[in-house]
Simulated scan of single mutants.
Amino acid sequence: MATLETHDPRFVDAILDWRWTALLARLALVGAYLLGGIVKLTDWPAAVAEQAHFGMQPAAMWAALTIAIELIGPILILSGRLVWLGAGMLGVFTLLAAVTANAFWAMPAGQERFMATNAFFEHLGLIGGFVLAALVAEHANRRRRA
C-alpha cells in the first residue's frame, strides 16, 4: 500500500519559515481595513456620507466608530498583541457590514443580487481568516508559555 508523504515540500517549508511570512499574511488580511480607516480619516465628509448611505444614524457617530475599528483592529493584529481582540473587532464589524451592505436575500434576482451574494460570502471568508489569525496567535502564545 502506498503512503502519502506527510511533510511539506521544501519550498513550502521555506516560505512558511521565512521570518516575514506571518507579518505579510496578517497585513494581507487587514490591509483593506487599515487603508479604509486611513481614507475615511482623511476624508471625514465622505466617511459620514457613506454611513448615511447605508442608513446608519447618527452618521457621524457610526463613521467615527468605523474608523476606530478599521484602525485599532489591524494594529492589534499586526502587532501580535491582543490579536483575539483585533480579530474579534474586525470579525463582528465585517459581519455587520456584510448584513447591512450585502443583504442579497432582500434583493430581486439579477446582477445586483448575484454580486451582493458573492460579496456576502467573501465577507464570511474574511471572518474565517480572523478566527484563524486569533487561533494561530493563541497557539503561539501557549507554546511560549509552555
Rank of each mutant, 00 (worst) to 15 (best):
H53L: 11
G36M: 01
A98M: 03
N141W: 13
T66G: 14
T117F: 13
H53C: 02
L23W: 14
L90G: 00
L16D: 09
P108C: 03
V92A: 11
V48K: 07
W18L: 11
P9S: 10
R145S: 15
A146P: 04
E50W: 07
M115E: 14
V99A: 06
S79L: 05
L126M: 13
L82N: 08
L23C: 07
R142T: 12
W105D: 04
L4F: 13
A134S: 10
A49Y: 08
G31Y: 14
G86R: 03
D17R: 14
G31R: 08
A25S: 12
I69Q: 04
V30G: 01
V12M: 08
L124W: 14
F130M: 06
L78C: 06
E112T: 07
H7N: 12
L23R: 12
A64Q: 05
A60M: 04
I67S: 06
P74I: 00
A109K: 08
I75R: 11
H139Y: 14
P45K: 07
V83Q: 02
L76V: 04
G73V: 00
A14E: 09
F11A: 15
M61S: 10
N102F: 13
M61H: 10
L65Y: 12
I38E: 05
G129A: 05
G129Y: 06
W62M: 07
A134G: 08
G91N: 03
G37K: 03
L126T: 04
A101Q: 09
Y33W: 15
L95V: 06
L76M: 10
E5G: 09
N141M: 14
V131I: 15
G80S: 05
L27C: 08
V131F: 13
W44T: 00
V30N: 02
G55A: 03
A59P: 01
A28L: 15
Q51S: 11
I38C: 07
A68I: 08
Q57L: 14
E112G: 07
W20L: 15
L34E: 07
F114I: 01
M1Y: 11
R81C: 11
M115A: 12
L90W: 03
A22I: 02
A140T: 10
V131K: 06
L35Y: 15
A22Q: 09
G86Q: 01
A47P: 00
T6H: 15
D43Q: 04
A134F: 04
A140N: 09
A98V: 01
T100C: 10
G73Y: 04
G128D: 02
V83P: 01
M61G: 14
M1W: 12
A103V: 01
K40N: 05
L78D: 02
A97N: 11
H7G: 07
A32N: 10
F104E: 02
M89P: 07
L29A: 03
W62Y: 15
L135Q: 15
A103I: 02
G80H: 02
K40T: 00
F130Y: 11
I127E: 02
M89Q: 03
Q111T: 08
W84S: 08
K40S: 07
G37Q: 03
A49L: 07
M1N: 12
S79Y: 06
H123G: 02
Y33C: 04
A87K: 01
A14V: 07
P58F: 11
A14K: 14
L96Q: 11
L126R: 05
T6P: 08
F11Q: 08
E112D: 12
L96V: 05
L135V: 13
